[in-house]
Each structure stands twice: as C-alpha cells, then as structure tokens.
C-alpha cells in the first residue's frame, strides 16, 4: 500500500513540476504591447492602428524599384507620381479626417510645405485621404486649410502601389526620391523638424 501511495504522490509531483516548467518557459514569450496584434486585441474599436513613430531612412544604394502612385485627387483631377519623376522629391502623407493623430500633424506638414515652396526647392507634397469619401475629405481639407493636394482612397487600393514598403498605420509619411524610389518613411506623427531633415537628406543624396 505504501508503495502505491508514494508512486501516486510522485506522479502528481512530476505533473506539477512539468506544469511549472512549461508555464515559466511559455511566460517568456511576451510580446510588444504596441504591436498591431496587441492593439487589435485591446478591443477599443478605435478603428485604426496607431503608428509607433518609427523613422526609416533608406540610403540611395538600398532603395527598391521606383513606385508609381496613381489616382484621383479630391478635386477630381488625375495624378500620377511619374509626373514628378526626374524633377521633384515627393512627400506622400497618408491621412484621414477620422484619425486623430493625423489631424495633429497637419500644421507641421503645412508649415514645411510652405517653406519648401518659398525656398523654391524641387519638392512636392501629395496626401492620400484614406478610408473616407472624397466629399468628407474635401470638407476637412477646407476647414484645416491644407494647401497641398490629396488623392482620394476610400478602399485602400492605392496603398498597394507601395508593395513591400506599404505604410502600416495612419498617419504615415513616405518620401520618394527624384527617381520615384521610397527614400524615407515615418510611421506615426511626423514633426516639422524631422520632415525637414528627411527632405533635405533626400535632396542631397
């Protein structure tokens, strides 16, 4: 009898030990609370995934193939990024009037846009109004006094033009060099100083 009881106690102990070991081992796999998966799991229905503010600069030699962004502006005109090829650096800003952090960065973008125009730098700005109707976007542009144009992209199809360099969260800012290659990316809110620096680096490269 003693033998059997001991055996059972031992097997129970072994199971408990295995359990603790597994718990500790798996507990180590914690993940970044700001990752997209974690944000989705929060369940706050904010309807978008916030950027983490990461800034990426791509040296000339490492840039991928030129991209062609093509669409209709909020005013109804056709625009293609090929029109700037060989002439201008293009700053592309992804925004939506429903996205609060996008609204916060607009004054900074507007400021830099005014500066580059005043300095006659070969730079153009193009927004992408993401996931809302053109009417809603235009009304917002008018009240915010945004002076640079924006493409309308209610369904998100324009984003596919960026391929593997697609922005992953609004707001996002991408800079295309004169050849149309992605030369810099900001995921999240961009400040005027950061944007200025990124533009100048691309102009010099």
């Amino acid at each position: 009898m003693t033998c059997r009881t001991t055996g059972r106690a031992l097997s129970r102990g072994a199971v408990a030990l295995a359990f603790v070991v597994a718990l500790v081992a798996l507990g180590g796999c914690s993940s970044d609370p700001n990752s997209i998966a974690e944000q989705a799991k929060k369940g706050d229905q904010k309807g978008y995934i916030a950027g983490n503010g990461a800034i990426e600069q791509i040296p000339s030699a490492q840039r991928l193939k030129p991209i062609t962004l093509e669409g209709t502006t909020l005013d109804g005109a056709h625009w293609s990024s090929t029109s700037a090829r060989g002439k201008d650096v293009v700053v592309i800003n992804l925004w939506g009037s429903w996205c609060p952090p996008c609204i916060t960065e607009i004054p900074d973008l507007e400021k830099v846009w005014t500066e580059v125009q005043a300095a006659k730098k070969p730079v153009m700005f193009m927004g992408i109004d993401f996931r809302e109707s053109a009417e809603r976007g235009s009304a917002f542009v008018a009240t915010q006094k945004m002076t640079y144009p924006s493409l309308t992209d209610e369904s998100g199809v324009l984003i596919l033009a960026f391929g593997r360099q697609a922005p992953t969260s609004p707001p996002s800012t991408l800079i295309l060099d004169r050849e149309g290659r992605v030369a810099g990316r900001v995921s999240g809110v961009v400040s005027a100083a950061t944007l200025r620096g990124l533009i100048d680096d691309v102009l010099d490269s």
Partner: peptide
Amino acid sequence: VPVGTGFANTEIRYDTIQ
C-alpha cells in the same frame, strides 16, 4: 466594406488583424 467601396489586402486596410 460598404457596398460600392472596396478593400485592398494590405495591413493598414484591416479593421482588426492577427
């Protein structure tokens, strides 16, 4: 996706993704 609009398979377009 409301009728008349669309969807593109890129991370940013998803409402939730895991």
